[in-house]
């Protein structure tokens, strides 16, 4: 059973968001990393790049597939987790911790309210598996 921490917000594209003031940290969920398999390559944006909500900000590649990652919120990148370039497997081993991908300064923090709660995301992934 995939791990879904209570204190995070989730997108239907399987990203998670941790909110700290107006900065959102974004990564992919345990369910997503498990579906992808061994992550071997992560492509991330540079600092200051702007993204709208639901816009692709990079990609995650496993041995067998490529998957785009979408920003659940709008804003400018304050930091990309560049060390994933050397240790992409952190996305598998610690998706909600060391596997984080970008920190984004939200231009519209209200967007968070339209994301899924942990319970809603859990139901969503169950429906997807069935």
């Amino acid at each position: 059973m995939a791990n879904v921490p209570e204190d995070l917000h989730y997108s239907k594209d399987h990203e998670w968001v941790r909110v700290d003031g107006d900065v959102a940290t974004v990564g992919i969920t345990d369910y997503a990393q498990n579906s992808l398999g061994d992550v071997v390559y992560v492509e991330l944006p540079k600092a200051d790049e702007q993204f709208n909500a639901n816009e692709s900000f990079g990609s995650v590649e496993s041995v067998k597939a490529v998957s785009e990652v979408f920003s659940p919120v709008s804003g400018a990148v304050v930091e990309a987790h560049e060390s994933l370039g050397d240790d992409p497997e952190k996305v598998n081993t610690d998706p909600y911790g060391e596997g984080w991908m970008i920190r984004i300064k939200m231009s519209n923090p209200g967007e968070v309210d339209s994301l899924l709660t942990a319970a809603e995301y859990e139901d969503f992934t169950k429906a997807e598996t069935e």
């Binding site: 398999g37 061994d38 041995v63």
Partner: peptide, 12 residues
């Protein structure tokens, strides 16, 4: 099966 829990890299 495309992979087992060990994962593709470990299996390979």
């Amino acid at each position: 099966p495309v992979q087992y829990p060990a994962g593709t890299i470990a299996e390979h």
